[in-house]
Design a protein around this nucleic acid. Structure first.
Lengths: 139, 139
DNA sequence: CTGTATCCTTGGAGATACTG
DNA sequence: CAGTATCTCCAAGGATACAG
């Protein structure tokens, strides 16, 4: 009964629930869906157009997972042709703030990341003996 | 010259730099590495033990990408046996706050997500006619 | 319009062995 | 200790066609 009741607290543990929850948003499309739905309800086709590069298959799949985890609500209007609207649930709304922080971070550090990349990519072309030596001395 | 200079601003654009930057942390392991390095410098083997479930290969790969993007610094001490230390760069440090917000969110909504899942998983076993009808009336 | 079903390809990732 | 190299395999995901 008490074998594996609470693996809650340690996010570094593989079977930890908190890790699973963290990784709800740790994929390619979920953050973009959240950003898209911040403005309010959207239909499937609207999301498909808004999120450039996503396929119908991946959008469906992403939305299903998000729905399962309680982040989005899916409302079907049985008319022809079908109308399906997606929106953030109250739980999903609570993600807006942390997600927004991440987006702001991304916008604010474009240059630094780009610069780090070119620096790194050029490093392999050059000798780095001096740098290694310097770093060793730090110890 | 001015063909594709600035695809900066729109994160919904596939080739947008901001999207790439956002997705630096949108994978399974990067957030955990950041959390692990918040406490300070760690060696390769320490990270491997701390982050349960990660393989040597994935840890190496994750660290290399993070290093390339300027999030972590890798310092090699040319001794035998080798010592390699990883730490967050100043740029990586700026990610701590938004990442911490995400972790707090995860911890704070374990129950809700778990509950949403069981509800969703049980839904397919039952008729849902009433709910659909209700939702339709909302329009 | 909003999907599902199927096929098919690619590469992501584990396992294992080897190296400085 | 901290990786790299190689092999292998499964599954993520694109393309396409079809359905309600």
């Amino acid at each position: 009964m008490e074998t594996k009741e609470k693996s809650y607290p340690d996010i570094f543990q593989a079977d930890c629930l908190s890790r699973q929850v963290l990784q709800l948003v740790a994929d390619q499309w979920t953050p973009l869906v959240i950003y898209a739905l911040e403005g309010g309800t959207m239909r499937f086709g609207q999301l498909l157009k808004r999120i450039d590069g996503i396929s119908k298959k991946m959008l469906t799949q992403t939305l299903r997972v998000m729905e399962r985890n309680g982040l989005v609500q899916r409302v079907v209007y049985p008319v022809v042709p079908p109308v399906v609207e997606y929106s953030l649930t109250p739980l999903g709304q609570t993600l807006r703030e942390p997600m927004e922080a991440l987006r702001v971070w991304a916008y604010g550090h474009l240059q630094e990341v780009a610069h780090a990349r070119t620096t790194y990519d050029q490093r392999d072309q050059k000798p780095i003996q001096d740098e290694v030596a310097t770093l060793v001395q730090q110890r």
